[in-house]
């Protein structure tokens, strides 16, 4: 099949970008979308043109590295990662628009590659359980109801790809943040830090410049892992509890990575 691509090209973060048009002929419908771009890049290289930069790594839908806005939809027409989208989802002669995730906190690095380090900083603000290595009790010490474990798992499958942000009309990362709050908040091990976690993570979310959630639901609709929309309400519930319980739930000072030593030792 033959397709025409309109692709966002931008030399670097400071440069102004524009859409460029490429004809891609003789491709197989069994190719993945990214393999089609590989083929285009091979041809561009032999022609002496700069290949298109795009992120991908595992190419089996789990690492979260890939992500393109295809025809205006994050990850394209199937609810899956871009790497799992195949050309059979398109028709011969289609004109396909390919753009990077667009959000102020996700600046473009080059072409279709964006910087998503804001997500890591949201996790740093509390998206963990403080369990220093070697201090854990036996795994069976605390049973976890299967229902809670399953729901925690559903939220924990987030791959941090950022499609939720790319799709959200508000540029909000609430689904990403809520997935982590829900994952850890449903488990008994996550209870001690439950409220400081939500306050810290939401504050970081806002500080990174993500927009506020107005419950439109586009995030869940494009999420390759179908993170349930309900997680956002769970986050809100925890946040309200935290705020109404006053200072006791505000984040502690960052943990120090060293053991206090008695000076006389």
């Amino acid at each position: 099949m033959n397709v025409t691509l309109r692709v966002w090209r931008q030399a670097n973060g400071r440069a102004k970008g524009k859409m460029a048009i490429y004809r891609v002929n003789d491709i197989s419908e069994d190719m993945s979308f990214l393999e089609m771009l590989d083929v285009l890049n091979e041809r561009l290289t032999l022609q002496g043109d700069d290949p298109i930069a795009f992120d991908s790594d595992c190419r089996e839908g789990i690492c979260g590295m890939c992500g393109l806005v295809i025809n205006g939809v994050a990850h394209g027409p199937q609810q899956t990662t871009t790497c799992q989208l195949h050309m059979r989802s398109f028709s011969d002669g289609d004109v396909i628009d390919v753009e990077p995730w667009r959000a102020d906190p996700f600046p473009v690095i080059k072409d279709l590659v964006v910087d998503r380090s804001a997500f890591d900083r949201i996790i740093q603000a509390g998206g963990y359980i403080s369990a220093p290595t070697g201090t854990a009790p036996d795994a069976h010490a605390t049973p976890v109801p299967k229902r809670d474990a399953d729901r925690a798992f559903d939220a924990a499958t987030c791959i941090s790809c950022g499609a939720c942000v790319a799709a959200c009309p508000n540029g909000s990362a609430m689904l990403f943040t809520a997935a982590k709050i829900t994952h850890l908040g449903l488990l008994p091990q996550g209870q001690p830090e439950r409220y400081s976690r939500v306050v810290g993570m939401v504050a970081q979310h806002d500080a990174e410049g993500f927009g506020g959630c107005t419950n439109i639901g586009e995030c869940t609709a494009v999420c390759p892992k179908a993170i349930p929309f309900e997680t956002i309400s769970r986050l809100n519930r925890d946040l309200i509890s935290a705020l109404t319980h006053g200072g006791s739930h505000w984040p502690r000072a960052a943990p120090k990575g060293e053991t206090e030593v008695d000076e006389e030792d």
Binding site: A131, A136, H140
Partner: peptide, 18 residues
């Protein structure tokens, strides 16, 4: 033990055990 303490959601049985 370490992973459970960190909140890794391993598969569980109805009794709540792994």
């Amino acid at each position: 033990d370490q992973c459970v303490a960190q909140g890794v959601p391993f598969a569980r049985e109805y009794g709540g055990l792994l």
